[in-house]
Design a protein around this nucleic acid. Structure first.
Lengths: 168, 168
DNA sequence: TGAAATTACTTTAAGCCTAAACTACTTTCC
DNA sequence: GGAAAGTAGTTTAGGCTTAAAGTAATTTCA
């Protein structure tokens, strides 16, 4: 009896929603955006304060750190999810700082390979260590279960977004 | 025997983790960032394509839409989580487009009240409607339960981040 | 082979964003 | 009342970011 009533209520709630109502999704998107901004702003602030480095530069170095043999500017821009022109400018600045090097591709003369210099590798190692602990601190109130669940749900959302963006 | 062995393995895995290991949190943060970027980039693209408007301008108008009597530049910058200087520039551009108005505060001559014009309200209404359906589309593969769970977990994360950022 | 298409990257113009310094006004407090 | 402190907003210099147009090299294919 109890169960039946609550099932009926749920159905009623569903039906009561206006046809084009997507408040829950909108609310979720706003929360995702706000959370992301909160974390990102603080990470930017700490990177600047502690290492006088920007997040895009840190991100670029993080990509290169995983590929000891370096990668092309095009591959970098894909991984960083930014435009080619953006990467050109970032690479210019990081080369000037001597933390990365840009070399002609061996066979394709349009292409260039960028990779961390020894100085860059050392600098990145120091930054990455602290960065990881900042994240751990900010995520501290999440249990391992929360973390796993959130990771899984975001994976599902990511897939959903990719599907919607390519098939529309 | 089997069960005991696997329990032993789990314990061993736990112990085997380096003291400062936070791979799970880092992975979660990277996924959150990537998902956010994916959605945001697409929303920016559609706003530009359909309405020739940028996301910051849309966001500013969205804030004002909720406050028919308008708000100060300071309040706007807080809600948008950006600096005062940033808002000054955005407001200048939106006033030039005649979608918002900037008026002297009645009693405090340092302060200004900005609010949507009639034109701005109409324009925003059109944009908001489509925006909502874009979000619904991108979030389409999430069940109502997923959406609720994700909203809840992000709320927890947001609180965790705020706590970490203020108490450190 | 050689013209057309494609690819890798750079340049440009314009907007977004920040921190820091500044102006003008208001509040506090002696 | 008036000096000092605080607040609201603007300006400035510099970095990030994009879309679109441009350059140079490579690939395709008739």
């Amino acid at each position: 009896m109890e169960l039946e009533q609550s099932a009926a209520l749920d159905a009623e709630t569903k039906i009561a929603e206006a046809p084009g109502d997507h408040k829950a999704e909108l609310r979720l998107w706003l929360r995702l955006l706000a959370t992301n901004t909160l974390i990102e702003t603080e990470i930017r602030r700490r990177l600047r304060e502690r290492f006088d480095v920007t997040l895009p530069r840190f991100d670029l170095m993080a990509q290169l750190e995983r590929k000891p043999h370096g990668m092309t500017l095009g591959e970098l821009s894909q991984r960083m999810m930014v435009t080619n022109g953006n990467v050109t400018g970032l690479v210019d600045r990081l080369v000037a700082e001597e933390v990365i090097s840009r070399k002609q591709h061996k066979s394709d003369r349009r292409s260039h390979i960028v990779s961390l210099t020894e100085k860059g590798r050392r600098q990145f190692a120091r930054m990455a260590k602290e960065h990881e602990s900042w994240i751990a601190g900010m995520f501290g109130a999440l249990s391992p279960g929360d973390t796993a669940a959130l990771t899984k749900l975001l994976g599902k959302l990511k897939t959903s977004v990719r599907t919607a963006n390519t098939h529309n």
